[in-house]
Design a protein around this nucleic acid. Sequence first.
RNA 1: CGGGGUGUAGCGAAGUGGUAUCGCGCACGGUUCGGGACCGUGAGAUCGGGAGUUCAAUCCUCCCCACCCCGACCA
Length: 426
Amino acid sequence: MFQSKLFGKTLRDPPKDEQSINARLLVQAGYVEKLMAGVYSFLPLGLRVLNKIENIIREEINVIGGQELLLPALHPREAWEQTGRWETVDDLYKLTDSSGRDFALGATHEEIITPLAKRDISSYRDLPLALYQFQTKFRMELRAKSGLLRGREFMMKDLYSFHVNEEDFNAYYKKVADAYKKIFNRTGIGERTVFTFASGGTFSKYSHEFQTLTSAGEDTIYLCEHCGVAVNGEIIDEQKVCPECGRPKDDLKIEKAIEVGNIFPLKTKFSEPFKLTYKDEKGEDRPVLMGCYGIGLGRVTGTIVEVHHDKEGICWPSAVAPYQVHLVRLSDEPEIVKQANALYEKINKLGLDVLYDDRDASAGVKLKDADLIGLPLRLVVSDKTVKDGVYELKERMSSRARVVKDIIGEIDKYKTFINQPIGKTL
RNA sequence: CGGGGUGUAGCGAAGUGGUAUCGCGCACGGUUCGGGACCGUGAGAUCGGGAGUUCAAUCCUCCCCACCCCGACCA
């Protein structure tokens, strides 16, 4: 991609109406643009990040047998009345059309997926089943905040699973938890993301969250450094000890964290109102057990920025960076342009995504922008490098640039480094 | 929804009871070219919205809206 053509120019200053690190950097670097509080447009760079995250999630959920589909965002009132949630869920956006009919914008999709599942579930032979989608969710947040971390409209992966009994459900629940670990490892926040016990609502003792440790987080969790699991502050009064090892609350470390994913046993909470049942081997009707599992893509994007940045800008982990390589040309001399163009073609041929800064701007501007945008690998082509017959290479995370002769060899090495396995424990 | 703060050009800011200034960015010309270069010329604003006070309001008063932060809320 030629940077001179890229929609989403960098800004000299961060916007004054954003305080959070993630929004300041993502807006300044041209990844997103705020339409209103809690609602952001994703510009080309931002969408590429979102798509990378989406694909990682898709790959890992496919590995555990999830089947992707797409449900509507516009829901009939009747679906939500069926579960009584039309009245009780107060962050539901409700609207009425000109004929007086009521609708809700989907805040979550149990009310849609459960009746849909009835279409094909009638026997124990049809189970287990796992369906998921990537969909925009709408929630009437009274106070949207923290940039991409708490929005009113956001892209979410939501997975729903259907089972004949507890054992089967529990086994799958565990599988999803493992898939989530891989997802967060691959997106670069794994080492700071902890499995957290949270409120299970009316039916289950617990639900579980994946909480990423950072001061930008709005949740308070109690981390057991011995087991590496945590307890959400919302249940610490009932759950006074580490659920894994029994260490008392006072031995747990209080941390701020962002909930990047959650997994939730639904038992028969939705299958009952929608009469989602199956016939067992004896021909008797039994309720289907369900689970739901969510990951907010925008929130993950914001979390990655909160975790991976420095004073100069974003430092994307390779797997989610919008482009792998930032090729920066520091001169408009014909010979330099020729060399830089040739290198751009070569890297593209190697199958790496390159953002090529071909703009007519000063070196300072280009280097500052490269740091701000935060691609993992920066290559500089200048009078200096061409004269010496070398290339300059710098990893965003490292403080020093290196000079190399065999640039293609270096990039090839880098390429194998960023190829991450799917569905394997990392 | 309670409390606090902020709204002036695309972005960041200054300012005044007499219709507005600066930097960046943008356009044109020239000089530059490894960490946000420089000179010249030029375009760009119904000063968040409404009402009121006044000869006159961007400025004073009231109401509203938006955004940020703290809190409450978060199926």
